[in-house]
Structure formats: structure tokens, C-alpha cells
Design a protein around this nucleic acid. Structure first.
Lengths: 123, 123
DNA sequence: CGTTTATTGATAACTGAGTATCAATAATCC
DNA sequence: GGATTATTGATACTCAGTTATCAATAAACG
């Protein structure tokens, strides 16, 4: 990551603008409105660099391929749309749920996924 | 599923004895203590048959390949061990969490995954 | 501007999960 | 037990996601 390039700037801008976890393919689709000839390999390469640099995090759920999002300081969970397959950040988790695993299990963190229709697809 | 075979009986017995969602590979590993020459293709075939027959359900989470478990009537969530990679059923969810997605999102169901160390691995 | 070389785009290669194929095996039925 | 045929085990294959390769491009810097 020694040089500033249109490709890297655009990929980061896509993640910033969407503000939700995106798959490599989604990133490509959005970014190609700015750089039509952008290649998928560049997206994967750039994701790797951003991960190494600690600028983004990987979000993997439910057997789908991983998504990537700019790091958030908040405790975030996710809504996963059954129609458009999009992932959306959901805040508001109080940190502790109103139930817990039994004695003996040492919970380090939890993830909650709401499944259904996002606001756009349910409209 | 016309004939009763040692393979099918063993695979079902493994799922019953473990009482938690198992990956095809886990099923193979457990079942091979009974049938050393059992093949992975038979595991996949048998899973498909049990799914069609409605005897088991598929549990998919967090980018891991799917696991399979005998159907439960309870609303179950899961604990996923960071060390042994095993999945465990966690009951006790009141059905509604103490936070929700914002207006506009239509939640059909939710999944909660606790991540950390299972009772065996934390001992 | 010209040189250097990191980066890119196109695409071939790889990977792991799951499926198809087919001869060998074994459950069922007489 | 013998015949029939569903099932099995071994393995080749497929597929989607990801990575490697390499010539062409374009940042950076004098």
C-alpha cells in the first residue's frame, strides 16, 4: 500500500458510503459505476490490504461468503435480507442478552442475526 | 430409503447420541468408529435422505459449512466453540430479544450465536 | 517529461464442499 | 441359498470463491 490509486480510493469510498458489510462482488458492482474496468482480483487484493492495515473487518455469517465493512467502534449485529441478500448493521444491543448459555460455557462474544425483509424489499 | 442398512442406522445413531448439529465430516468421523470403511459420499447421500424425510434439519451459521441435527421442537440457538469448532444447542431464548431492528425491517426469525469456549474446552 | 516500479486487469489455476458415476456389495424376498 | 436390485465406497468431476501469473498501466519522484 505504497501508492495512492483511484482503485483503492474508490473501494474504500464504496464501503464508507454503503456503511454496511459488502461481499467482494457487491464491492465490485458498486465500484464499477466509477471504474468500469475494475477487476475482481483488485477487489480481493485491496480487501486483503485493508484487513492487514486494520481498516476494515470481516463479517461472516450463515454459510454465506464473507462480507467486509469499515471498522465500527459500536457493538453491532446484523439484519440479513432474504430477498436482496443484503446485510445491514443493527445497533441497540444492550451487550447482554436476556438469556445465556448454561454453566461451563465461557462466552467471549455473541452475534445476533435477524432474518427477513429489509426496509426496501418489504416496501 | 427402501432398505434398512448399517450405514443409515449408524449415521442416525451418531446424530441422536451427540444431540447437537454435526457437519458431514464430523458425522463421518464419529460413524467410522463403527464402520471404518464408511465413505463421505454415503454421509452426504444419507443426510439428503433424512432431510427429505423430514427427520433432520440443517443448521447454517457464520460462514461455516452446514451442520445437521435431529429435529427439535424447541426454539434453539447455538454456542460455537472457538477451540474444537463444535456447535452446541442453547435453549432459553424467550422468543423476543431485548432489542429489535428499526422500523421498516420485517423480521421473520432470528439466530443467536454465542462464541467462546465450550464446557469441555474451557475445563 | 522520463524512469522506476507498485499496481492493475485479464485470465488461468487452485481450493474445498458437494455431486455423479459405476462396479462391487449386501438387503430383501422367494 | 439364489436372484434381484437398492445401496455403498472409491474416485472423478463440478462449481463458486479466491489466488497466482504476467504483461500493460500509471503513481511517484527526480
Amino acid at each position: 500500500m505504497e501508492r495512492k490509486t483511484k482503485q483503492r480510493d474508490t473501494i474504500f469510498e464504496v464501503l464508507r458510503a454503503e456503511n454496511r458489510p459488502l461481499s467482494p462482488q457487491e464491492i465490485l458492482n458498486y465500484a464499477q459505476t466509477k471504474i468500469p474496468k475494475l477487476g475482481i482480483a483488485t477487489v480481493y487484493r485491496t480487501i486483503k490490504e485493508f484487513l492487514l492495515a486494520g481498516e476494515i473487518t470481516e463479517v461472516k455469517l450463515f454459510g454465506s461468503s464473507p462480507r467486509y465493512a469499515i471498522k465500527s467502534q459500536e457493538h453491532q449485529h446484523h439484519f440479513w435480507c432474504r430477498i436482496c441478500d443484503g446485510l445491514f448493521n443493527i445497533g441497540g444491543c444492550p451487550g447482554t442478552l436476556n438469556f445465556q448459555p448454561p454453566q461451563g460455557f465461557k462466552t467471549e462474544f455473541h452475534e445476533v442475526i435477524f432474518r427477513g425483509l429489509c426496509s426496501r424489499c418489504s416496501a
